[in-house]
Design a protein around this nucleic acid. Structure first.
Lengths: 220, 220
DNA sequence: CTTATTAGTTGAACGTGTTCAAAATATTTA
DNA sequence: TAAATATTTTGAACACGTTCAACTAATAAG
């Protein structure tokens, strides 16, 4: 017995839940059906997971664990900012792919006070780790940016990613083709923008941008 | 009897609901309590409103009706893009002010398939009218912008507004001071950006931006 | 005025997520 | 091994949003 039996039960419930979510969607899936599918009583599901939402949280966490090594490996191989960003974001698309619809039923939660929101206290740990990928991508690249803006770049890129994922989640086009176009074009724009960011013409924007970022992210 | 009695009942339920939402928050407010507060049976609330969400929808609609004349009057008086934008957005802040917290409980819905989402089919009418304000603001201003980007400007500004409102809704700072700073600084950046948008240096960005917008907003 | 039709109102009942006291099972202690 | 303790499992019960058949009040038709 390598794994504790309770660990197996937990896993069985999580798998059952993802199956039912996939069939019915998050809202229409009932805890009773999930329990039935996992061959346990309703109460058992609540013994392992605090709530229906918490099951999804567990899914997030498991996904993050799966993606981390893949992303780290790709980051090791990549040199430019562009390829680094591709490494991170493409991996997300791939790993979340099978559960894209589930994500859609969830991202109903932009509310930072909602436990499932990517901006909430509860998801802080995951978010911070994710941020560290962008920190690496930036630090290990040769991006020239005013010193008062540069510290915010990782967080900006993270936000950019979140927006892209949100678009993707609700993208109804074949194979999410629209998201992919968006992905290509915005990434190119990003690169061009960073390239010309140092031009004197844009100086007045720099000060404003720095002040703006200080407001948004506190004075840290 | 100027107003039909049923109209009064509907109004009474709506007011009661907003009171209870204000006290308890949207999630914690129960239909039973709202009905009690309005001195009707639960069923009556459902006779006038399709669901708990629908009550909020009615609130949206009523707010829009209130704001329209105010915004139109301000637009008549304003000449520059900046003051026009201020007219629209400041009015929102003022009108939604008393119910800011309620909005927070709701904007949990970024999901365009959720009826209450500002991106959903159900809110299309309201959204389109709102968009028309930005169309006016743009058309009646002297903004120089490449022809392939200009058509999208109203929608971009609308999005900018939505982002600002979202930030505001979750702004926990005293008097929402952070949002106000964000408001000032982003607006200034917007103006500066539009002013220098015609510079040749930025030519490569124009093509990318136009393609990008075509992807996002279809080919309309 | 009487009757028929429509508009408004009621509250019990349904299925939901969630709780919890009790039971069953596994583990530790003596 | 036997008893005590901890872990896991159970499903009835709760409060919620919502539905709906039955009822009452208002209005229209004859």
């Amino acid at each position: 017995m390598k794994k504790k039996k309770s660990e197996e039960t937990r896993e069985r419930i999580l798998e059952a839940a993802l199956r039912v979510f996939g069939e019915r969607g998050f809202e229409n899936a009932t805890m009773r059906e999930i329990a039935k599918e996992a061959e346990v009583a309703v109460g058992a599901a609540y013994y392992y997971f605090e709530s229906k939402d918490a099951i999804v949280m567990a899914f997030y966490e498991r996904s993050q664990e799966e993606m981390r090594p893949r992303i780290e490996a790709l980051l090791d191989k990549s040199r430019t900012l562009e390829t680094r960003l591709r490494a991170i974001i493409s991996t997300k698309f791939e790993c979340f792919g099978p559960n894209r619809k589930l994500l859609g039923a969830l991202s109903a939660h932009a509310n930072p006070e909602h436990p499932l929101s990517p901006f909430s206290q509860e998801t802080a740990a995951i978010r911070e780790q994710d941020l560290s990928f962008f920190e690496r991508a930036v630090v290990e690249s040769e991006v020239k940016l005013p010193g008062n803006i540069r510290p915010y770049l990782p967080r900006l890129l993270w936000m950019y990613q979140m927006g892209l994922i949100l678009f993707w989640v609700y993208d109804r086009s074949e194979e999410q083709a629209r998201t992919m176009l968006l992905y290509e074009k915005t990434l190119k724009m990003l690169v061009v923008t960073l390239k010309i960011a140092g031009v004197p013409l844009l100086r007045p924007l720099h000060r404003l941008a720095a002040e703006l970022l200080a407001v948004v992210y506190g004075d840290s």
